[in-house]
Design a protein around this nucleic acid. Structure first.
Lengths: 258, 258
DNA sequence: CAAATTCGTGCACAATAGTCCAAAACCTTT
DNA sequence: AAAGGTTTTGGACTATTGTGCACGAATTTG
């Protein structure tokens, strides 16, 4: 492998993990310890890494900074996301709403050839370099912390878009429909529903029976719900009454190491 | 095979892969090692790719892998970025173009209260949680690797926007104006220029006298240029003739090739 | 304080780059 | 079409640089 290429690889690994041991680098790039040391020395001198005894830490803010990696989403959330991702067929045009669950869905998409539309910066950063994914970002005012683009511009951009499926999360579900906590968010999400032929809702069972500030849409807007075993029979019946397909993932306790 | 044709082929391969070994080029274009070396030397001098020991990396601003170029982001680039950031006053509305130099500018903005508009995912990620920064993202088709949003949607979004200052980079500057390597990028950047009252160009001195595929705009579109000491008196005069304010940061003089 | 890592340095070896020159291809002129 | 000059190419040779290993110094750990 070429020197510069290898150094780039080291940087990538360091960026991804935040911190790498020298031994790990030796194993991952397949060169001798000396060479890795020399590379670290070089990259440290360049100010791109901070050497420490036994390894190196990435210097500066990483490009995809949003804690994508350290994210501690629960096993349940991950399972729901996995199932939702499985429902998506290669070649589809998918609109992904913001939120931690949908971010998890995005993570599970790798390898699929898709057109993905999103207004979430974390999701876009994640999918940006995913081979096979054609990415379209819905711009607008970027809401701090969550990193989703909202507002007039986002709504305008969504009006010119048509997708086969929307995957969205919610703040709460009742018989009256879906709720979310932010009025601006709700407005944008309504336009998303307009743009989609099929709406898939990802929501863990705790969301059922919960309301939130703003009413988003009625249950009839939703065609599919992915949730966990915790959902009661009552709610299952409500879903059935609205012709909503329920996908229930087992909420078992098997630990998934990542 | 004609020389020029062969060089184009090399460029194509480099562009596609981001990084090619010399051996691979020898195999793919079917000429001797010496010839490939000479071609790489030429293309490096032209600034179309960066030679490295054992191969070469594509240098265009539009398709190159971010991390590779990050590798080469020099002290100079950082200095230029710092000065450009200093020029920005608190309270301004700034439009930031994509590219490594502008990303560096974004890094140097911390603490300033600003409205920032950008079409670059890496820049948006960086500024998303910056206190004091109000962020607006220009959506569109996200170009892989560099993570800039381009195309019709991006242009449409830019049309409804007005900013006090645009900070942009370029592939090359001649008396005819600015150049960039990608037609789609150029189109979007033209709209950015339209949207800005003041255009600040960040470009290291090696960019002077260099052309690239697409003509972006004339020199009269630019009001400010931030560069390093390596810029020759000739070019300084050209800038003066166009009423462009030159900001020159101290630094090691870049070697003039050719 | 001793053992165990980790780090830096010197050295031999290999890979890569630069230089030079002769052959080949190309272009121009008659 | 042939001759002469220019440019380009490929191979041989030398110089330079990167790599891996060995060993002693430095640092951490128990």
């Amino acid at each position: 492998m070429i020197t510069d290429e290898r150094r780039t690889k080291i940087l990538q690994i360091a960026e991804e993990l935040g911190f790498v041991s020298l031994q790990r680098l030796v194993a991952e790039v397949g060169v001798s310890e000396s060479t890795v040391r020399r590379d670290l020395e070089y990259l440290d001198a360049q100010g791109q890494l901070h050497r420490t005894r036994g390894g190196a830490a990435y210097a500066g803010d990483s490009l995809t900074d949003f804690d994508i990696r350290q994210n501690q989403s629960s096993v349940e959330k991950r399972r729901i996301a996995q199932r939702a991702a499985d429902l998506i067929l290669p070649g589809e045009t998918v609109l992904l709403d913001g939120g931690t669950t949908t971010l998890e869905v995005a993570r599970q998409l790798h390898g699929k050839a898709l057109q993905v539309v999103t207004n979430s910066l974390p999701i876009a950063s994640l999918l940006m370099n995913q081979p096979g994914v054609e990415l379209i970002f819905i711009g607008g005012y970027v809401y701090p912390k969550t990193g989703v683009a909202l507002g007039e511009q986002a709504i305008a951009a969504l009006k010119s878009i048509n997708v086969s499926r929307l995957v969205m999360s919610t703040g709460g579900i009742t018989a009256e429909g879906l709720f979310n906590s932010n009025a601006l968010l709700v407005e944008t999400e309504r336009q998303m529903i307009e743009a989609a032929q099929l709406v898939t809702l990802v929501a863990d069972s705790s969301k059922f029976g919960r309301r939130a500030l703003s009413h988003l849409c009625s249950l009839s807007s939703v065609q599919e719900v992915v949730t966990d075993e915790g959902v009661t029979d009552e709610w299952k019946q409500v879903m059935r009454n609205h012709d909503i397909r329920l996908e229930i993932v087992p909420g078992s306790v098997t630990r998934v190491t990542m």
